[in-house]
Computed example of a mutant assay.
Amino acid sequence: MDDTSKLTEKEIIRVERNSGIVSGKLREIQMQNYLRKKEQKETQERELREGLQLYKSATYEESLENFESVLGTKSGINEASVASYNVACCYSKLNQIRVGLSALEYAMKAGFEDFKDTYMDAHQL
């Protein structure tokens, strides 16, 4: 296929992979995907940091928005579990225990394993 301008990125990758040829177009797609994922990860990390700062200053609703923003993106397992755990903490501070427990359950299903901090935080309520 000579005219790759009408193909989707996945189709271009598939065609080139099958042909054994790596074009400049494929390299461009790979670089764009890399930069997009890098930017998304940086945004998630910034949202987590800002959420933690808001949490420490006892602005739990604003903190909750940051953590939920991370969950609203395609976050990695680590980011999802940490954000979910922090969502649970915010809900507990807002005295919404049921929702907090649900968020904590989700965090653990997402891979959160820092049980020591969970135990300590639960006793600080």
Rank of each mutant, 00 (worst) to 15 (best):
M1Q: 11
D2N: 14
T4S: 04
S5N: 12
T8G: 05
T8F: 01
E9F: 07
E11M: 14
I13C: 01
V15M: 05
V15E: 11
E16H: 10
N18V: 13
S19A: 15
G20K: 05
I21Y: 02
V22N: 15
V22I: 10
K25W: 01
R27C: 09
I29W: 01
I29V: 02
M31C: 06
Q32N: 13
N33A: 06
L35E: 15
L35N: 10
R36W: 08
E39R: 10
Q40R: 10
R46S: 12
E47S: 06
L48P: 00
L48E: 04
E50C: 07
G51W: 00
Q53F: 05
Q53D: 13
Q53I: 09
L54E: 10
Y55R: 03
K56R: 09
A58T: 08
T59A: 01
T59F: 00
Y60W: 12
E61H: 14
L64I: 06
E65I: 13
V70N: 06
L71H: 03
G72S: 11
S75Q: 07
S75K: 04
S75A: 15
I77Y: 13
S81E: 05
S84H: 00
Y85T: 04
Y85F: 13
N86Q: 07
V87G: 08
C89I: 08
Y91N: 09
Y91C: 03
K93G: 01
I97D: 14
V99H: 14
L104T: 08
E105Y: 13
A110N: 12
G111V: 10
F112G: 03
F112D: 02
D114Q: 13
D114P: 04
F115D: 11
F115W: 12
K116E: 14
Y119N: 08
D121Y: 13
L125G: 11
